[in-house]
């Protein structure tokens, strides 16, 4: 599923709101999550999952091509953990 397919499917439920506005909603949700993460924050959507900024310690890495050592600085990475309900749906579907 792509972003545009998501917008299409959601707007089918809201004929009164219109696809352009639903597109804005999806954009808004994505940018609020991204914005929160970029401030080091956390987004918790019960049933769906949790997005958070996770710390990565600095480490010595290697350029795999040349073997040169490089310092990789500490950083934060976006992390998503699926919620209970989503995990369950995923596995109910299997059998």
């Amino acid at each position: 599923m792509t972003r545009s397919e998501l917008v299409e499917k959601v707007s089918a439920h809201f004929p009164d709101i219109g696809q352009a506005k639903i597109d804005q909603c999806v954009q808004h949700i994505i940018s609020e999550i991204s914005g929160t993460l970029s401030k080091g924050g956390r987004v918790e959507l019960r049933g769906f999952g949790v997005f958070e900024a996770r710390h990565r310690k600095p480490r010595v890495g290697r350029n795999p091509r040349t073997g040169d050592q490089v310092q990789v600085p500490a950083k934060y990475i976006p992390f998503f953990k699926a919620g209970k309900q989503l995990k369950q749906t995923l596995n109910d579907n299997a059998e």
Partner: peptide
């Protein structure tokens, strides 16, 4: 309602299609 539908639809997409690309 829109937020719930977005999350539900996205979940369904992930489950039924094996993923979603935003």
């Amino acid at each position: 309602d829109v937020l719930e539908t977005v999350l539900k639809t996205l979940s369904q997409g992930i489950v039924e299609e094996g993923g979603a690309k935003i």
